[in-house]
Amino acid sequence: MTKDLMIALPKGRLGEALMARLEGTPLALDPGALRSRVLRIPTATPGLSALLLKGADLPRYVSAGIAALGVVGSDTLDELDADVLEVRDLGLGVCRLSLCAPGGVSLEDLARRPHLRLGTKFVRSTAAWLREQGLTAELVPLQSSVELAPVLGLADAIVDLVETGGTLRAHGLMELHTLKRTSARLIASRGSFLSEPRRMDALIRCLAEAAA
C-alpha cells in the first residue's frame, strides 16, 4: 500500500510566491480549496496534498514524517532543533540576517559596551555568532517590530532579516555586519527520503524546477 504524501508550504509572502510558481505543474494547488479556509489543499497530482502552515511549525510536521517535504526559510530552520534533511537551497526569498544599530554607532562601539543588549527574533543564530566573535550580550527576544527596540531604548542594536533595508532606514538604523545569507530551503523528512527515495526524488526535482 502506498501512503498519500503531504507537502508543507509556508503561509505568507514566501508561500504565495511559491504557489504562483507551482501553477501549471503537477504540484499546482487546487484553486477552489485555496479560496476556502481549509489548510489541507489537494494538488493536481492524486494522492498528494499540500499543508499550509506557519513557518515556525512547518519543520516539526516534516521531522515527524507527517509531511514528506516542506519549504521554509533557512532563518526559521536555524532556530529549531528539527531533524530534517535540507535537500535544496531554492534561492527564493533571499535576505540577510544582519546586525543593525542606530546611525553613527559602529561594531567596535557595540563590542566595547560592558552590557550590550541585542533585540532579535533569531536568538540561536545571534548567540552562535556572538560565540564565534568572542562577544557577550544580553539577548532580548522579540517576535515582531524589532526595529523599534533600539529607537525606544529596549536594546542597543538588533539582529534581524534585511531584504532592501527600507524599514531600517525609516527607523534611522544602519546595517553594521551580515551574520549570514538566508533563503527558502526545500526540506525532507529523513524517514520518507530514505525509505522511499525514488518517489521522493521525483517530487524534489519537480518542486525545485518549479521554484527555479
Binding site: 501512503k3 514524517g65 524517514g191 530514505l194 525509505s195
Partner: peptide, 11 residues
C-alpha cells in the same frame, strides 16, 4: 548498514 522500511520514519 541501515535497515529501513517504506513508511518508517526512523531506521
Amino acid at each position: 548498514l541501515r535497515l529501513w522500511a517504506p513508511g518508517a520514519q526512523r531506521e
